[in-house]
Simulated assay, not measured.
Amino acid sequence: MKRAERLEWWNIAFTISIVAVMGAVLGNSQTMKTAWVEDTLGLIPPAVFLVAIRFERRGADGGFPFGYARVHSLAFLIAAVALCGVGLFLLRDAISTLLTREHATVAGIDLFGREIWLGWLMIAAQTYAIIPPLIIGRLEQPLARRLQDEVLFTDSKMNKANWQTGAAGIVGIIGLGLGWWWADAAAAAFISLGIVADGWRALRVATAELVDGTPRALGCTGPDEEAGLLIRKLEAQYPGADIRLRETGRYIHAEVRGVTPDARQDLEALWPGDPKRSWRLAQLSFVPPDQEP
């Protein structure tokens, strides 16, 4: 967790520098505008991750007797809504430009007494914008899986989208230089589609988590493999019982209905997967037959 926090602080620092560099050379390019907005959005996942971790460490208190584990789920929802909303806005903007056949231009600027095409500076800025997300995104993936952290995993996906945006942006700018008026808006639309797809996927998972849905696999809407193994193990140990699992942030809460436990349960021993990940099973509760609604 400490390593993930340090990485997210580096992520924020590099993202701020990228936003500043990109903002200095925006011009009239639709691709540059879309890429700049996406890079700015890239600040949301690491910021909400760091805030959520601070709350999660507080533990239970009088006002929140079950602790702050769900803050992680709320942070995930915030990141997902931001991705979806802004992605749809940028997609609408790009499609509108294509339909109205608006011709963007990239003018020349005076630099140290010489006039150069602004597109060269845009390409240089996009090239710089590719490098940090490519490295940080790859470093985040194994940490997200080890911590079962949806926000961190979403951030790694966001970084992947950012460096792909940089590559698409370079193509769009070169297209403008070659006189292809549609290349700029087409590249922006392609980038926007990626943002919307990532945001929609994250929104579905975040919503399911907040309404006590069955635990989902990290980064997708399918069932979690470890949760499936846990259900089968509990069903074998308590035949005929109704087994229910829900996810609270990175943790799993299990409920066995219609059974009275015959002995104290060892949560680590019950965990069916890697023993190093047994921390995911945070609670096991029982509802005896005579207490079922």
Rank of each mutant, 00 (worst) to 15 (best):
L229H: 05
G273P: 08
P239Q: 03
L218A: 09
A263I: 04
L270D: 08
K233Q: 14
L229Y: 03
I231A: 05
P272A: 04
G219S: 06
R232L: 11
A227M: 05
L229R: 15
G240K: 10
P261R: 06
G258K: 04
G273Y: 08
I231D: 01
L230D: 01
I231L: 11
C220Y: 00
L270S: 00
A236N: 14
V256A: 05
L245E: 05
G222I: 00
R264A: 11
D224N: 15
L234D: 08
G258Y: 00
G222K: 12
A227G: 09
G240D: 08
T221P: 00
A269F: 09
Q265P: 07
E255P: 01
A269V: 03
Q237H: 06
Y251V: 00
L270I: 11
R257A: 09
E235Y: 01
T248H: 15
I231Y: 03
L234F: 04
E226K: 15
T221Y: 01
T221C: 04
G222N: 02
I243T: 03
Y238R: 07
A241E: 08
R216A: 13
I231S: 04
A236Q: 14
Q265D: 06
G249H: 03
I231N: 01
P239L: 07
Q237Y: 05
E255T: 14
E268A: 15
A217T: 03
G258H: 00
Q237D: 08
G228M: 13
I252G: 04
R232H: 05
